[in-house]
Design a protein around this nucleic acid. Sequence first.
RNA 1: CGGGGUGUGGCGCAGUUGGCUAGCGCGCCGCGUUUGGGACGCGGAGGCCGGAGGUUCAAGUCCUCUCACCCCGACCA
Length: 422
Amino acid sequence: MKRSELFIKTRREAPADEESKNAQLLIRAGFIHKDAAGVYALLPLGLKVVENIKKVIRDEVNNAGGNELLMTSLQRKELWQHTDRWDDKKVDIWFKSRLQSGQEVGLAWSHEEPITDMMREFIASYRDLPAYVYQFQTKLRNELRAKSGIMRAREFIMKDLYSYSRTEEEHQKFYEAMKEIYLRIFDQVGLGDSTFETMAAGGPFTGSSFSHEFQTVTENGEDTIYLDRDRKKAINEEIYTEELAKNSGFDPGRMEKVQASEVGNIFSFGNHKSEQLGLFFSEEDGSQKPVVLGSYGIGVTRLMGVITEHFADEKGLAWPQSVAPFKVYLASVGEEEQVRRAAGNLYDQLTDKGVAVLYDDRDARPGEKFADADLMGIPYRVVVSAKSLEAGGSELKKRTATDIIIVDDNQLAESLTSSLHE
RNA sequence: CGGGGUGUGGCGCAGUUGGCUAGCGCGCCGCGUUUGGGACGCGGAGGCCGGAGGUUCAAGUCCUCUCACCCCGACCA
């Protein structure tokens, strides 16, 4: 895409009404727009990042048997009354509204109830199990206090997957498989080295004593975890005791207390919710049994925030290739006709080869183009100028490195297409 | 919801103990000169100072109420 055709405006200064690093940078770089506290719009580049994160998740989850669908944002009151979660005293983040008839409806903060209710139509027999469905959906949560930019918003995108299993054993098998899949997902978006499976509270409605979170170690993290780096596992401070650590196979003396950000959370619900909502199936012997339920979440926009903060430096964003909105920032420097032509040709050539190029074709000064390339965090920067042409091609520089090499067009195309998974 | 802070052109800010046509930087428009790390000159446009009420000869500045945003806390399935 040509920069002159991209809907974007970068800013030199951070907005005054944002303190968090993620929001300041994402707004400065033109990835998001703030509309209200905890309410952010995704601009073209931000949307690309979200779509890229979704693709990583989608590929892994589909591989594990997930079926993508899309539930609704309007939800029925009775459904939530069955599980005793409609009352504002029980769930204090509800947004609620009314139909013109006066009937109350809820705005989706979670989809466990509606999706499980829907399953009654599709699950009648052990032959229908297991079933794994998921979606990327906007969650609306009336948080008492939105904070930390896109890390804790009132409206955000979440991947939520639900598993419906015949037995506890079958459920456990999938649950364990999902742990691996989650780690692979976080690895692919660049957080593999600092993201850890973490034991956390099961929660009052989950029917199990623990859930598992995936926590990314980061200095601004809102959670505190006790981490065993060798085992690559941790325990959330909320539930941490030395006894629990020992019983879970940890050596409390070797655990490190660190700040972290939650990027994923998985739950076992047992069959309690199925009983409440009436989701039963016929066993081989004809007996009726409740379905065993699990849920698996990843906050997509929150993950974008964690990635932002994890990789950002003093010059701005620095996306891992797997989620970057473009792979290459191509900048022409100088207004000479031959430079223009060479840059335009290079743009066509790379684009034809499937490389995602953002071509800065503006009549702007070099410093401005470089600053934008850095701020936007595009993994590679390619510069075409009279100087580079004289040296035999264009300049190639990684966002995270300082060295610059001169490459001819063929070398460039080759190194950019062969480093797709870097 | 408790505590603290901030609201002044699109963005970032300044504005004395109340005082006359409300400033500065960035951005924007026009012309010209520039072109390897966010250029420069000249000329422009753009603001009822978050909102409502009050005190006063006079309010961006003082008082009351209110709204929004940020931070800390509580909360976070």
